[in-house]
Simulated assay, not measured.
Amino acid sequence: MQTDVVRIGTRGSALALAQAAEVRARLMAAHDLPEEAFEIAVIRTSGDRIQDRPLSEAGGKGLFTKEIEQALIDGRIDLAVHSSKDMPTVLPEGLEISAFLEREDVRDVFIGRRVERLEDLPRGAKLGTSSLRRQALALRLRPDLEVGMFRGNVQTRLKKLEDGVAEGTLLALAGLKRLKMEHVASAVMDPETFPPALGQGAICIETRVGDARVGGVVETIRHAQTGAALACERAFLAALDGSCRTPIAGEAKVQGKNLRFSGMILTPDGREAHEIAGEGSVDDAAEIGADAGARIREKAGNRFFDSWD
């Protein structure tokens, strides 16, 4: 590869920087290059600036990506590192997801202020989360809970918990592992009853379409199985017009040449939920996801989706 410095764009949170550093380390190892060959550029996004209301009210998932994507379009960075679950299903013209790193643990964890499990929270206790999916799943299990908005990075949320803003919160285990903070988790949620966000645990790399130089650099660290799983999950999300306003969960698992997918949609109050499953060849990953999305949409009916509006 050429020796020009590769500029990696990322958000500035501790987790985002850890993810960018992981990408850099993998690229350094793959190309036998020093750290100086890769520059990490921090870009503040709208999602980082807006802390006073849920993302669903502020504009959705693109709030964590649009400024970084503009820097990529403008040529100020060469590649962008994102949490896959933050990525909208439709990307700006001229950009593409060119690689996924091997996926981390997809599960959520519960962190309690005074109890170890979600089930142990006192009746009517306040649960802090900014995720509609986590809200819906929690209320499905514990309809008595009061759910309050909990925005901010991992450290901010833990401080809010310590200060008594809520009695418990939910975070992704993958993020805690990348921050070497998994010890703060009180309990790991069962993915059968508390399925993850689509894309959870996977780091993706976004590049310019047709950029052969950067594409060649990134190709060396692409994890094919994770790519297939995410192609399925993103197709499911796209079939449902999914955004931060829609409580959607699911996971695709790849075993050899086979892919299995399970998905769920819920109303924000958790009172109604529909589940779907699909299976087939890993080569048909996107088709499996899209088909599952079409089937669950038909199963739930228009009335269900009208409740989101």
Rank of each mutant, 00 (worst) to 15 (best):
I111E: 01
T89Q: 03
K180Y: 14
I40T: 13
E119R: 13
K126W: 01
D74C: 11
E22N: 15
I111Q: 03
A138R: 02
R222G: 04
G199Q: 03
D284S: 15
D291C: 12
D48K: 01
V282F: 14
D78G: 14
A273P: 00
K85F: 14
G9T: 14
L198C: 11
A16P: 04
F150A: 10
L79T: 09
L259N: 07
K253Q: 09
G148K: 05
R303Y: 07
E167Q: 15
A30S: 14
G227N: 11
A238N: 13
L170I: 12
K177S: 12
L170D: 02
L55I: 03
L118R: 10
A20S: 09
V188H: 03
V184A: 13
T267R: 07
K126I: 08
K299W: 11
R271T: 15
A231Q: 06
I8H: 00
G201R: 00
S56M: 06
A286R: 11
E96W: 06
Q51P: 03
M87T: 03
G280R: 14
E251K: 14
E146A: 12
T246E: 10
P195D: 07
E116H: 07
L127S: 01
E119D: 06
K253P: 01
R140P: 05
F38L: 04
G216I: 02
G215Q: 05
S262F: 12
G164Q: 11
A136D: 15
V184E: 14
R44T: 15
K126D: 12
V42W: 03
L237N: 04
I265Y: 13
A58E: 09
A136Y: 01
A41Y: 07
R222N: 09
F38C: 08
F100V: 06
G215R: 07
R49P: 02
S84G: 00
E102M: 10
T246M: 11
R213S: 12
A212G: 09
R113G: 07
A228M: 10
E57N: 08
R113M: 08
A172F: 04
G278C: 08
H183K: 13
D74A: 14
R234I: 07
A14H: 11
A20P: 00
R303T: 14
P195N: 01
L121S: 12
L266T: 15
P247T: 10
G148M: 08
E104C: 10
V184H: 04
A252H: 08
R103L: 05
N258I: 13
L55V: 06
T65D: 11
T10P: 01
E233M: 06
R26G: 04
V147D: 01
A239P: 05
G216E: 08
V282E: 06
K159H: 02
G210F: 10
E96D: 10
T129D: 01
E233G: 02
G270C: 04
C204V: 02
M189Q: 03
A212M: 09
A187M: 09
F261R: 01
V90I: 12
D190W: 11
L63V: 14
Q255R: 13
V23P: 05
A37Y: 01
P195S: 04
